[in-house]
Design a protein around this nucleic acid. Structure first.
Length: 156
DNA sequence: GCCAACGTTGGC
DNA sequence: GCCAACGTTGGC
């Protein structure tokens, strides 16, 4: 059981979209970074929990929690000619990009990036490291427990 | 294998 | 829209 943080632009997919259809498995499509792909393809396990992070919006921050609910499989969007995530270098017989499905767990109050930076307990968080651009990254158990317990007020 | 150029991410 | 930081590409 590991913890993660997954970034999404809410205009594309938001925690509200998951919440609106909590039984649905949402493919986490569009990741085009090898390190993030490797986390999804190789390291994640079904049942892992992840913070759902809203990026590229007015107030970026953690907006809720989702659960990894599938094994990894090829991201269809890499083969969609003319679409934003098309990758002409990737072949169906050797897909380059893999994803997993996630499902809604909880919405939280928005925890803005600027607020997360103020907590000494989170000073080592990868999300807050200078120049960090990874869209999928591990979260330590201590960070997870602090955020869910102290900032979200969820029972442990 | 180095590294400059370029494209992308993502906060502000 | 700007720009810092990073990842990728490709020439050498």
């Amino acid at each position: 059981m590991q913890y993660w943080l997954m970034k999404s632009e809410p205009e594309e997919l938001s925690i509200g979209d998951l919440e609106a259809t909590p039984a649905k498995a949402f493919p986490w499509f569009g990741v085009r970074n090898y390190q993030a792909r490797n986390f999804m393809r190789d390291t994640m396990q079904v049942g892992d929990l992840a913070f759902f992070y809203h990026s590229g919006c007015a107030v970026p921050g953690i907006a809720g929690i989702c659960r990894i609910c599938s094994d990894s499989y090829p991201d269809d969007s890499q083969f969609a000619v003319g679409q934003p995530y098309f990758d002409p270098e990737s072949k169906p017989e050797a897909p380059r990009w893999y994803l997993r499905d996630v499902r809604f767990v909880a919405r939280s109050r928005l925890l803005p990036l600027a607020e997360l930076r103020t907590w000494p307990q989170l000073a080592g968080m990868r999300l807050l490291a200078r120049g960090n651009r990874l869209s999928i990254m591990p979260v330590s158990e201590a960070e997870w427990k602090f955020i869910t317990g102290e900032l979200m007020g969820l029972p442990s």
